[in-house]
Design a protein around this nucleic acid. Structure first.
Length: 444
RNA sequence: GGAGGCGUGGCCGAGUGGUUGAAGGCUGCGGUCUUGAAAACCGCCGAUCCGAAAGGAUCCGGGGGUUCGAAUCCCUCCGCCUCCGCCA
C-alpha cells in the first residue's frame, strides 16, 4: 500500500538513543506529561534491541551469501551431493533469520511509532514558559486604535455593509463557514493577489499551486500526523490506494514538494509562496471564536515556505518574519511580534514567532506563525541536500521554515476593523487599491 | 470503464536465476596538457543501516511469494504511456 521509503525519525533517533536526557529536557520544557517522558526510556530500550537484532541478522545474511556462492560453484563442478548438504545448512540459517526479521519488524514498528509521536527538540534560545501568557514580545509596529474590546466587530461591520453573510453560509454547511459577496469577495481576492505579488516580485519567492488533498505520508512529513489526525478532514474512501486528507495549510504540500530528494547546496535556499484554501476540523475548539471569520473550517492563506541549510536557517527565519511583517505594514495594520515560549511552541517547531495583528474588538490576534523546524520535517520526509565544497560530502537533512504571509480571512477582518471610518465605511489602504479596481472605501 | 505496454543509479541505457550495486554512454568532480579556455587523455563519482575501524548488510517503483541464491520467475499495489469508451 504505502509507497516510498519507510517513514521514520523525527528528531535524530541517535540523539534519542545516546542523549535521552537532552530529549527529556526538551519535553519537560514543553510541559509534556509523564507518559510522553517515559516514551524516551522505551525508545532507548527499543533502539538497543534493534541494534542487536540488526547485527545478528546481518551476520546471518553474510553467512548465507557466502554459502550460496559455494553452492553455485559446487553445482557447476557437478558436485551435487556437497551442494545439497550445504543447502540444508542454509535453510537452517534462513529459519533463524525469519524469526529475527519478525521481531525486528515489531521493534522497528514500535520504535518508529514512538519516534513519530515525539515533538521536535526545542531550540535552546526558546524562552521558558507554561502557557501563551509567557510568550515574549519582540517588537511592535503601528498605533492601535480603540481598547481592543469594544470596537465594532468585523461581523457587525461586514453584515452592515452587506459584504459578509454568515447566516446563509450556515444553510450551506453550518457553523464556521462564511459567504462573502460584492466588495467583500473582491477584497478577499484582492488580498490574495496582493500577498502573492508582494512575495513573488518583492521578496523573491516562486509561486506554486499545489493539490489541496494529500496522502497520509505527506501529512506525516510535516508533522500534522500521526498526532493530530482529529484536526484534519479525511476522505471517506482511499484515493489512489491511500488515505487522503484535506490540507490544513499549504505548508503540507509545499514543504513536501522535494520529499525523498537530495538537493544540491547551490539550489538552496528554495523559497515558495503558495495560495491555497485551508481546511481544519477545529476539533476541541468548540465554543472558541464561534462568531465570525476568526476560526472557521475553511479559509484562505498565502503561505511562505523555505528549504535551506542549517547554517543559513536562522537568517532565513528572520527574513521570513520580515516578509510577513512587510505585508502588514503595507496594509497599515498595527501588530506585534511574539516569540513563543517553550510550552506554546508547536509540535514540529524548534522555534517560532507569531505575528499578532491588532483588532479593535479583540486586541492582538495571531495572523501569521513563522516556524523554524530545523531538520525535524526534513528527516520525516527524507528531504536532504548535499553540502557544497568537499567532493563527496554526505547528504544531510535540510532545514525547513514556513510562515503565513498572511492568513487572508483574518487580514480581511483586520482591515474591516482597523480601517473603519467614523461614517461607517471602511477605507481601503493605498497598497490594496490597485487590486480593488481603484476603490478607496467600501460603503462610502 | 475496457485492452495493451512499461517502471534499472543525477540522466540515457544494458542486463531474464549465480560472485552484478549493477556493462556502456552522458553529466559532475579531480588531474595531465594549455598563457587561459576548449579538445584529448587518466582517475574518481549512488543511498541507507550496523561497526571505533576493518568490514558487513540492504536497496534495480512499493509490498509479498518461490529458491541455497532474484534486477531477473510468480502475486499484488502504485505510477507512467498507448488505443477504445465516457465526461469536461
Amino acid at each position: 500500500m504505502d509507497q516510498g521509503p519507510p517513514e521514520s525519525d523525527m528528531i535524530d533517533p541517535n540523539v534519542v538513543a545516546q542523549e535521552p536526557e537532552r530529549v527529556r529536557d526538551s519535553l519537560r520544557r514543553r510541559n509534556a506529561d509523564e507518559a510522553t517522558l517515559s516514551e524516551v526510556d522505551r525508545l532507548v530500550a527499543l533502539s538497543e534491541r534493534r541494534r542487536a537484532l540488526v547485527t545478528e541478522r546481518d551476520n546471518l545474511n553474510a553467512d548465507r551469501n557466502r554459502l550460496s556462492q559455494q553452492i553455485g560453484g559446487l553445482y557447476k563442478a557437478g558436485q551435487r551431493e556437497e551442494a545439497d548438504a550445504l543447502k540444508v545448512t542454509v535453510q537452517a540459517g534462513n529459519a533463524r533469520i525469519a524469526v529475527i526479521e519478525e521481531e525486528l519488524a515489531t521493534v522497528d514498528g514500535e520504535r518508529d511509532a514512538a519516534l513519530m509521536g515525539l515533538p521536535n527538540l526545542l531550540d535552546a534560545r526558546v524562552p521558558d514558559g507554561r502557557s501563551e501568557a509567557d510568550n515574549v514580545e519582540v517588537r511592535r509596529w503601528g498605533s492601535p486604535t480603540g481598547d481592543g474590546q469594544t470596537g465594532e466587530s468585523h461581523v457587525e461591520i461586514g453584515t452592515r455593509l452587506g459584504i459578509l453573510d454568515l447566516e446563509r453560509a450556515t444553510k450551506l454547511t453550518g457553523t464556521r463557514f462564511w459567504v462573502l459577496s460584492g466588495a467583500g469577495a473582491r477584497l478577499e481576492r484582492a488580498l490574495i493577489n496582493f500577498f502573492l505579488d508582494l512575495h513573488v516580485s518583492q521578496h523573491g519567492y516562486t509561486e506554486v499551486m499545489v493539490p489541496y488533498m494529500v496522502h497520509r505520508s505527506v501529512a506525516e512529513g510535516t508533522g500534522q500526523l500521526p498526532k493530530f489526525e482529529k484536526d484534519m478532514f479525511r476522505l471517506a474512501e482511499p484515493l489512489n490506494g491511500q488515505d487522503v486528507f484535506l490540507i490544513p495549510t499549504a505548508e503540507v504540500p509545499v514543504t513536501n514538494l522535494h520529499r525523498e530528494e537530495i538537493l544540491e547546496a547551490d539550489q538552496l535556499p528554495l523559497k515558495y509562496a503558495a495560495f491555497t484554501p485551508c481546511f481544519r476540523s477545529e476539533a476541541g475548539s468548540a465554543g472558541r471564536d464561534v462568531r465570525g471569520l476568526i476560526r472557521v473550517h475553511q479559509f484562505h492563506k498565502v503561505e511562505l515556505v523555505w528549504i535551506t541549510t542549517p547554517e543559513d536557517a536562522d537568517a532565513c527565519h528572520q527574513a521570513l518574519v520580515g516578509h510577513a511583517e512587510k505585508a502588514l505594514q503595507l496594509l497599515e495594520l498595527p501588530y506585534r511580534v511574539m516569540e513563543l515560549c517553550a510550552a506554546d511552541t508547536s509540535f514540529g517547531a524548534a522555534r517560532c514567532y507569531d505575528l499578532e495583528v491588532w483588532l479593535p474588538s479583540q486586541g492582538y490576534r495571531e495572523i501569521s506563525s513563522c516556524s523554524h523546524f530545523g531538520d525535524f520535517q526534513a528527516r520525516r520526509m527524507q528531504l536532504r541536500y548535499r553540502p557544497a565544497g568537499e567532493k563527496k560530502a554526505k547528504p544531510r537533512p535540510a532545514h525547513t521554515l514556513n510562515g503565513s504571509g498572511l492568513a487572508v480571512g483574518r487580514t480581511l477582518v483586520a482591515i474591516l476593523e482597523n480601517h473603519l471610518q467614523p461614517d461607517g465605511s471602511v477605507r481601503i489602504p493605498a497598497a490594496l487599491r490597485p487590486y480593488m479596481g481603484g476603490v478607496e472605501a467600501i460603503g462610502a
